[in-house]
C-alpha cells in the first residue's frame, strides 16, 4: 500500500514538475510553431463574430466633450514619412495632393484636399485606443468615407476598402497599408479626417488625410493615405493579411 502510494505521489510530482516546465519553455516553442499560432488565432474569428453579432452598423463609438481632450495628441508609428514624393507634397502644403479612389468601383476618381473639404463634413471627439494599451482623446473633422463611396459607387463584388499610405516602414521601402470591410466603411463615424483639434492634421498625426475607424484599435486608422482601393479579397496584397501589422501577426479585426 505504502509503495503504491509513494509511486502515485512520485507520478503526481512528476506531472506537476513537467507541467511547470512545459508551461515555461513549451509555450515559447508553441508560439513559434505555425499550427499553434493559427489555433490561437481562431479565437480572433470568434471575437469578430461575437462583436458583429452584438454591434449593428448603427452602434456608435462613444463621443466625448472638449474637456476630455488630451493636451497633446501623441504620434505613434511613422511621425514623418521618409518618402521624397510625400516630402514634396508637404512642402507645397498638400496643394498638389490627389487622393485616388479606385478598384472595384463604377466611377473611379481623384480628390484634391479642397475637393474633400467641399463635401459635407463631420466633427467628432473620440478616444483613440492603441494596441499597446494607451488611449488619447482628440477632435477629428473630416468627410465620412460613406460620402466618397456614394460618389464612386462600389461594385456588388467589392468587400473591402484598402488604404494605401505614403509612409515606408523599413529599409525595404514597404509602405503602410490597412483594410476594413464595408460594414465599417459605411459606418457614420468612419472619416477621412483632415483636421485634428481644429487645425489641419499635423504631419505627425497623418497629414493630409488619415482614416478614423472608431470601433477598432489605432493601427487600423492608417495615416498619410494616398490611394483607396476597393477589392473583393485581401490575399494578393503585400503579406496577404490585410494590413502592415496584420502581416506581422496582429489581428485583422481590431475591435478588442
Amino acid at each position: 500500500m505504502t509503495s503504491q502510494k509513494n509511486s502515485r505521489r512520485r507520478f503526481l510530482q512528476r506531472v506537476l514538475v513537467s507541467g511547470g516546465a512545459l508551461l515555461l519553455s513549451g509555450c515559447d516553442q508553441l508560439s513559434r510553431s505555425e499550427w499553434f499560432a493559427k489555433l490561437l488565432g481562431s479565437a480572433e474569428r470568434l471575437s469578430f463574430a461575437a462583436q458583429r453579432l452584438l454591434l449593428t452598423r448603427k452602434a456608435m463609438a462613444q463621443e466625448f466633450t472638449e474637456a476630455d481632450l488630451s493636451p497633446d495628441f501623441r504620434s505613434n508609428g511613422t511621425s514623418n514619412p521618409d518618402n521624397p514624393e510625400y516630402q514634396a507634397l508637404a512642402a507645397g502644403r498638400f496643394a498638389d495632393y490627389r487622393l485616388q479612389v479606385g478598384g472595384l468601383v463604377a466611377r473611379p476618381r481623384t480628390y484634391s484636399l479642397d475637393d474633400l473639404k467641399a463635401l459635407p463634413s463631420r466633427t467628432q471627439i473620440t478616444r483613440h485606443d492603441c494596441v499597446e494599451g494607451w488611449s488619447a482623446i482628440g477632435k477629428w473633422k473630416g468627410v465620412q468615407l460613406s460620402r466618397v463611396l456614394e460618389q464612386v459607387e462600389p461594385h456588388a463584388s467589392a468587400r473591402y476598402v484598402v488604404f494605401h499610405c505614403a509612409d515606408p516602414m523599413d529599409v525595404s521601402g514597404e509602405r503602410y497599408y490597412e483594410s476594413i470591410d464595408l460594414e465599417d466603411a459605411w459606418h457614420a463615424q468612419t472619416l477621412l479626417a483632415y483636421e485634428l483639434n481644429d487645425v489641419p492634421l499635423p504631419i505627425k498625426n497623418g497629414a493630409p488625410v488619415r482614416v478614423r475607424v472608431e470601433r477598432q484599435l489605432g493601427y487600423k486608422m492608417a495615416k498619410y493615405i494616398m490611394r483607396i482601393e476597393l477589392v473583393d479579397r485581401l490575399d494578393h496584397i503585400a503579406g496577404g493579411e490585410g494590413g502592415y501589422w496584420e502581416d506581422r501577426g496582429y489581428e485583422w479585426y481590431a475591435g478588442i
Binding site: 462583436q51 454591434l55 463609438a61 470601433r215 477598432q216 484599435l217 475591435g255
Partner: peptide, 8 residues
C-alpha cells in the same frame, strides 16, 4: 478595454 464593445 475593447473599442468594439465600448460602442455597445
Amino acid at each position: 478595454m475593447s473599442p468594439g464593445l465600448n460602442a455597445l
